[in-house]
Nucleic acid binder design. Structure first.
Length: 597
RNA sequence: GGUUCCGUAGCUCAACUGGAUAGAGCAACAGCCUUCUAAGCUGUAGGUUCCAGGUUCGAGUCCUGGCGGAAUCACCA
């Protein structure tokens, strides 16, 4: 049991004994004592003053006095206003270090045998290359999966590829009409980029037709868009696809194959992976089937034109289309199918969908529709809704060419890492292979940290002109801190690092060492918190704080040149646990930490 | 217009879920390398937490009403 819990239950006992009432555990808030006050943990006594019928100060005095007697770790206290600051025996912190210093899994919980959590993320369309928005999605999904796992859950990472639908038909059509047989090999283009180009081509050609129709026939722009020949052809292509027309399927398979090759490269470089990949082309039929079953059972209704709808008015939502009049499926249909399939595949205890907040309404509806269908997993859905990545001029728009391409961005980051490292003159004793790897992990570290340190639900801003900093609250700062510690540990030598913990007098601990120990102590709780909140940002902010704490210690005291041998040994252990915590924490963000930089 | 989310230093973000005097980093200014890696450390300056009420011992956080921004309300995904 953790000390905080021990103190909390002691507090409940003390209140019962002294004031004759049992208080709810939620009222007992124990936090870390702020730096400007003396103490380690702080109990807020305001909630108990009514029960105690005494002033906050008197109440705190009574509880504080009893805690010193009842809880052996607590050796002192002071009262400031309604805050009871408790001081723990310094040995407590040393014992903590002793216990954890050789634990390579510090902060990670053993796997519980429970139903897995299925995390869906990435979910790209196969008509466009990945951009900065996808990067946020992928990093979040991967990191959240890793954090859940660290907190003891079994996790299945899945990707749902949007490989069918009208948008895919658009790039197919453009390639068939204007492509002249171009392939990634013939053009040297990355597969996803090539297909993306044809999607753009479709849009530009379509726009020409629309402009014509508006000018010559005076149609409204929306009407013109619908009736333009290219749009008609795309829709015809979709119908042919759903009828499994062999020629259409062949083109579709070929072009999607190019895209997957391109995506795989990007995923690999980004360091994300999946346990299972779903394709909507495999799941939409199941969705249709479920919708039809729902119709037969009377959960849904049909309009005169044959389209199928869900009436969600009992949930205070309106009607939602589930199948078109021509029988083709929509987005919602597919998601019904994939939810079912996923449930059948994994028997999950929870299904997390990492999808942008622009789809909040969609997921609200999906949950309600599944409830209408009386599916047991309707309540397991959790939409991890994250904010958009915005540019200084606003949202990224592919039509205006303001999209930040994922591959280009990674190139830039790695290049900046190279330049910065060379400018700092740190490349001497590093081999070529090693350098390449170093630039990669620094560049991606900067990018990943930049994105993951922001609370997922908030929109965030990315300014391409300013690029991403390597100083201050950044990935490279943390990587640098790790490299410095590792440098000390290398110099200390394996024997000293792996030796036993010296018995030093607890009273010799200085403030920086104690602060560092206290911060390290928090790590397991931070991991749990982050897994409950599905928030990598909490990990990022924690590691940053830890690094700052270490750097202060590093600045003020020497580890290896400390004359008192026991203290030097102790500091080696302390540094060791810090390095490991940094490493473990960064691993949860998918960021590697170097030995040297 | 309805619904949802957001609004914190010039800029980018925190604030342990209602707790003490709202904190970091960038940018600015002033310092610290003969000493384990200066991608570091220390200091100065920067705030009516959008506004107005309310709830209570206590509000950036909760409730109401404004103002400003974003998303969504498709037979797009």
């Amino acid at each position: 049991m953790k000390v905080e819990e021990k103190i909390a239950s002691a507090v409940i006992e003390i209140i019962k004994d002294n004031f004759g009432q049992v208080v709810a555990p939620e009222l007992v808030t124990i936090t870390k004592t702020r730096k400007e006050f003396e103490g380690d943990f702080t109990l807020v006594v305001f909630p108990f003053v009514k029960i105690a019928r005494r002033s906050p100060e008197q109440t705190a005095e009574i509880i504080g006095g009893s805690l010193v007697k009842e809880v052996e770790e607590v050796i002192g206290y002071n009262v400031i206003k309604g805050f009871l600051n408790l001081t723990l025996a310094p040995e407590f912190w040393l014992d903590f270090l002793k216990k954890e210093m050789n634990n390579t899994n510090f902060g990670f919980q053993p796997e519980r045998k429970e139903n897995p959590v299925v995390v869906e993320y990435s979910s790209p369309n196969t008509n466009k290359p990945l951009h900065l928005g996808h990067i946020r999605n992928n990093l979040l999904g991967w990191s959240v999966s890793r954090i859940l796992q660290a907190a003891g859950s079994t996790v299945k990472k899945v990707n749902l590829v949007n490989d069918r639908g009208i948008h895919i038909c658009k790039s197919m059509l453009a390639w068939m009409k204007y492509g002249e047989g171009e392939t990634p090999e013939s053009s040297g283009k990355k597969g996803d980029k090539l297909v993306g180009d044809y999607y753009v081509k479709f849009e530009t050609e379509l726009r020409k037709q629309v402009d014509q129709l508006v000018k010559k026939q005076g149609l409204a722009p929306e009407e013109a868009r619908r009736s333009a020949p290219l749009m008609q052809e795309a829709q015809e292509l979709l119908r042919k696809w759903e009828l499994r027309d062999p020629d259409t399927i062949a083109v579709w398979e070929k072009m999607n194959g190019w895209v997957y090759e391109g995506f795989d490269q990007t995923y690999k470089r980004l360091g994300v992976d999946f346990d299972k990949i779903y394709f909507e082309s495999d799941t939409y039929l199941l969705g249709k089937k479920l919708v039809k079953e729902g119709l037969e059972k009377g959960f849904f209704f049909q309009k005169e034109d044959g389209s199928v709808w869900a009436d969600l008015s009992d949930f205070k939502l309106d009607e939602k289309l589930l199948l078109r009049a021509d029988g083709t499926s929509v987005y919602m249909t597919q998601d019904i199918g994939t939810a079912q399939l996923r449930y059948d595949d994994f028997q999950p205890g929870k299904m997390v969908y990492v999808v942008g907040n622009e789809q909040n309404y969609h997921f609200d509806v999906l949950k309600k529709v599944l409830k209408k269908l009386e599916k047991p997993y309707a309540g397991l859905l959790h939409h991890l809704s994250y904010g958009m990545v915005e540019l200084p001029e606003g949202k990224m728009k592919s039509r205006e060419g303001t999209v930040v391409d994922a591959d280009d961005l990674m190139d830039e980051m790695v290049e900046t890492a190279r330049k910065t490292t060379e400018e700092l003159g740190k490349t001497q004793d590093i081999g070529e292979q090693e350098k390449k790897h170093l630039y990669h992990i620094i560049g991606l570290g900067a990018l990943k940290y930049f994105i993951l340190k922001v609370d997922p639900k908030k929109n965030m801003l990315f300014n391409p002109a300013e690029s991403i900093d390597f100083n201050g609250n950044t990935g490279p700062f943390i990587q640098y801190t790790h490299a410095r510690i590792r440098s000390i540990l290398r110099k200390a030598g394996q024997q000293r690092v792996e030796g036993i913990m010296p018995s030093i007098e607890a009273s010799k601990l200085n403030v920086k060492e104690k602060n560092l120990l206290k911060t390290l102590y928090d790590f397991p709780a931070v991991v749990m918190e982050a897994s409950e909140e599905l928030s990598p940002a909490q990990i990022a902010n924690y590691i940053y704080e830890l690094c700052k704490e270490f750097n202060q210690f590093y600045h003020d005291y020497s580890v290896l040149n400390e004359p008192d041998k026991d203290i030097s040994e102790f500091r080696i252990r302390l540094s060791q646990l810090t390095a490991r915590t940094v490493k473990n924490g960064m691993e949860l963000l998918g960021i590697e930490v170097p030995e040297k930089m």
